[in-house]
Design a protein around this nucleic acid. Structure first.
Length: 197
DNA sequence: GGTAGGATTACCT
DNA sequence: GGTAATCCTACCC
């Protein structure tokens, strides 16, 4: 399978600080493979979700269901969630087994591969829904490991020096009360692919 | 077994 | 700027 020197090691995902991981994922490369062709995108927008005490997280307060089960897995898994019946949202599970932390990947900037048939001409917005469509992410990817055994993985990209990273509140989590105010959304400043500025 | 709701987007007025 | 589309998950009988 993937034998790639840039592949992020499992230890990257196993750390305890999901907010830090969300920040570090910015600028790294998300890769999916379909029909043998790799499609690469630079991660430009992420959000951190913490299982332990974050009401915005599906697995908040120790809630454990068949859907959220994957979030309790060892870091390095994909958690794909269908929102509003239409949009697939892609998360990266982090932390050790038993801790339901995850990083939501909200936007990527297209790199290699042919994206012409994946992005409609409308440039009004970019968000997790379009990201999943563009990368071909579906429920099939749910629970897939990102460490090289499957058709989706993340590569290191250390050369984002000088890039401005902005922290802000997360999107669409108003229901989470005071936790909605946490500055756990990170994006790359002045990037056209960020969903919201 | 049935129903309410959601980490959104596109299209209409 | 408002709202329809759309379907899986969770929770309550």
């Amino acid at each position: 399978m993937t034998n790639n020197d840039f592949l992020l090691p499992k230890s990257f995902y196993l750390r305890d600080d999901v907010v830090q991981i969300a920040k570090e994922l910015l600028g790294k490369t998300l890769v999916t493979r379909q029909n043998g062709a790799a499609r690469k995108g630079k991660i430009v927008e992420t959000e951190a979700y913490r299982g332990y005490d974050d009401k915005a997280c599906h697995a908040s307060n120790g809630k454990r269901t068949p859907r959220t089960e994957v979030m309790y897995r060892e870091g390095g898994c994909a958690y794909v969630y269908l929102c509003y019946g239409i949009h697939h949202l892609f998360n990266v599970v982090t932390n050790v087994a038993g801790k339901a932390d995850a990083v939501l990947i909200r936007a990527v900037e297209p790199l290699d591969g042919d994206w012409s048939d994946r992005h409609p001409k409308t440039k009004t917005s970019n968000g997790p829904g379009k990201l999943s469509k563009a990368m071909g992410i579906t429920m099939e990817m749910n629970t897939a490991r990102l460490t090289g055994e499957n058709d989706i993985w993340i590569e290191d990209a250390p050369d984002i020096v000088g890039t401005s990273i902005v922290a802000s509140t997360r999107v669409g989590v108003d229901y989470a009360g005071e936790d909605a105010l946490l500055p756990w959304r990170f994006y790359i400043c002045n990037n056209d692919w960020v969903s919201k500025k």
